[in-house]
């Protein structure tokens, strides 16, 4: 069977972010794009399934500006994905989860994919909508906040666990399905050096912007518009409380919280 794993390029956590000239988006200048942490867990899950189910292959799919998408796709190939598809974001298309889902739907509707894995959200905009929206467009079930996805050969179904308030729910899921994964529960592997070298030369299937444009036209009209993009205000210095006894410390802290920080009325 073919597993698709969706990978999103997000700014590296060590990159210094700046608003662009218009003040409504991120200035891409100097930004290093890396595979989103949640998606890295999804890739790891895909590879674990591939290793446990004979005859399984994994295709990584990414939507975004070509260079960015292909960078994370090569990373996914270096980790062990068999193939990759880049879905080119048309110039001017908004960064909107429904638009992204529609673009990915175009790529997926052309393939017989049994299982779609993705991170439950991405580390940049954190909307958590692409997985559910894509499942809706494909007309199949979606399982969110998942961990420990296993293949049960006897029943030809997946078993997985979903995080809920205070615990985990065990679920049996038939295919096809979209499963959105929790981050960093499965200790994603490190790419081997020879695989990194090979991944640089790997062929990547391309879905050009011209094809994508018509597929996203309907939802693009519904896309959220970002009005402003600002950095959080710089942190101000911490305030040290001087005290002679714990009681005095607590009293002073409460007074500051009430009178200065106005946390309590």
């Amino acid at each position: 069977m073919e597993i698709a794993v969706l990978v999103k390029p997000v700014p590296d956590a060590e990159t210094r972010l700046r608003p662009d000239a218009g003040g409504s988006g991120l200035d891409p200048e100097g930004v290093k794009w890396v595979l989103a942490g949640y998606d890295e867990s999804a890739v790891e899950q895909a590879l674990l399934l591939k290793e446990s189910i004979p005859g399984t292959s994994v295709r990584a799919i990414s939507y975004g500006p070509l260079a960015r998408a292909e960078e994370v796709l090569r990373f996914a190939i270096a980790l062990g994905c068999d193939a990759a598809t880049s879905v080119e974001q048309p110039a001017g298309a908004p960064d909107d989860p429904l638009v992204t889902a529609a673009a990915l739907h175009l790529a997926l509707s052309k393939r017989a994919v049994a299982l779609v894995l993705c991170g439950k959200q991405a580390g940049d905009d954190e909307t958590g909508l692409v997985g559910p929206a894509l499942a809706e467009m494909l007309g199949i079930a979606e399982y969110g906040v998942a961990v420990n996805v296993r293949w049960d050969a006897a029943s030809s179904a997946l078993t997985l666990q979903q995080s809920v308030e205070g615990g985990l729910v065990r679920v049996r899921a038939s295919l096809p399905a979209v499963v959105a994964l929790q981050q960093a529960w499965n200790d994603p592997r490190t790419a081997k050096l020879p695989n990194i070298l090979k991944s640089r030369k790997a062929a990547i299937e391309r879905m050009p912007a011209s094809e994508v444009s018509s597929a996203i036209a309907t939802v693009q009209a519904l896309a959220a518009r970002r009005l402003a993009f600002r950095l959080p205000p710089p942190r101000t210095g911490a305030k040290m409380i001087e005290y002679k006894s714990p009681e005095e410390a607590a009293e002073r802290l409460v007074r500051i919280l009430r009178e200065e920080a106005k946390v309590f009325p």
Binding site: T190, A191, L193, I196, L197
Partner: peptide, 17 residues
Amino acid sequence: TSEQTSLRDMARKFART
């Protein structure tokens, strides 16, 4: 090159973790 950056990043990750 992007290949060199990938190699360096991988080594950095191994070194740190």
